[in-house]
Nucleic acid binder design. Structure first.
Lengths: 192, 192
DNA sequence: CCCATGTGAGACATGGATGTCTCATCCTGG
DNA sequence: CCAGGATGAGACATCCATGTCTCACATGGG
């Protein structure tokens, strides 16, 4: 416990702050650093000690989102079994992070010129690969590109997260609504 | 031409400014008033003469978006013919405004407490009615609520607009991608 | 016990966007 | 030609979020 630093509190707090910030920014993406701090139950000074500025906070949030996404990707074991079941597992696993992802998704829309975190490219690639596999196995229709299906998945997750947070959709239906809508469109219709 | 006011330029310019601002804010939602003005080819002073502040501009943009939406709703004649064809017509008609709608959709997410324009409620209701009609006629599955289908339509339009603007999807495929994905999910599968 | 570290509260300066105002210019219609 | 409205350029003042710093406190370990 010597070289680990002062105490174990720092890492714990950092994670707690991060998750609180994610929850707040999901609802109000323009929240002030002060609001973020108060939401986490700490002062603005302490918040700034952990994350040097809003940029750093958002970047940390991005890293968290990427990590949770990749964890979900791993846990869903995308290359096993039918692609449609893999999509279902993916969405189920990723649901807890949907709010954070929605925030980051819209946030990234205004990064325009700047290069974005390479993690997103890896994630995009893995999801696209899943849809491609489904197309090659004949499960998914081929007139919708994997890139579009991936983008649509992001859009539906954002819509779903917002709809839930505004009470237009029950939280318990989240996964079902998204899976059914996305798969119903992505699955090739069975011929009569 | 006497009581119409000074000259015809003002109204024309107002519309031009509005559309330019819509195009810019669609790509960069944090654009400065100065950037908006320069994009429209006018000075910040003149922009401020037409729209007293950013709030007023966004509100005007919102009114424009609502007007275009309702025009699309009218033109699509939602209560005629099969519901699935009506959905197709709606998306086709609404496509030109998709970028603006995407901007307003995400913008509205942070209006949190404030009451939002009643126009959105009317539009939501008309779209939900369309999905409800499709469910009652047996065209659409009933396990996805009209509210969710409406929300999903917004989300897919936003995703589609962004995907097109970033070159991940061809602009000419916009309507097809959205209609096929949404309807494929909303349509009841034909029993084998 | 006493010191070190983390923290909260708050002051202060800074920067960026915005609202407002003035003035010179331009154009157009009478 | 001339007067009035509209515009562009720019100067300011202001507001708000942010970055930075100081100081007092408390808490826990040596």
């Amino acid at each position: 416990m010597s070289h680990m630093g002062y105490c174990c509190l720092m890492a714990v707090d950092r994670d707690h702050v991060l998750r609180t910030a994610a929850a707040l920014l999901t609802r109000k993406s323009t929240a002030t650093m002060d609001e973020v701090a108060r939401a986490a139950g700490i002062s603005r000074a302490t918040l700034h000690r952990h994350f040097a500025g809003r940029d750093a906070l958002v970047r940390a949030l991005e890293a968290l989102g990427i990590a949770e996404c990749e964890a979900a990707l791993d846990a869903a074991r995308l290359h096993e079994g039918p692609a449609r079941d893999a999509v279902h597992r993916l969405i189920r696993r990723i649901e807890p992070a949907a709010g954070l992802l929605a925030f980051l998704y819209t946030e990234n829309q205004l990064f325009e010129g700047e290069e974005q975190n390479a993690g997103w490219a890896r994630i995009d690639e893995r999801i696209e690969a899943l849809f491609r596999r489904g197309q090659q196995s004949g499960e998914f229709r081929i007139d919708l590109t994997p890139a579009w299906l991936t983008e649509a998945l992001y859009g539906l997750m954002a819509s779903g997260a917002w709809a839930v947070s505004e009470g237009r959709v029950a939280a318990k239906d989240f996964t079902h609504m998204i899976v059914e809508l996305l798969l119903g469109g992505a699955l090739r219709r069975e011929e009569p």
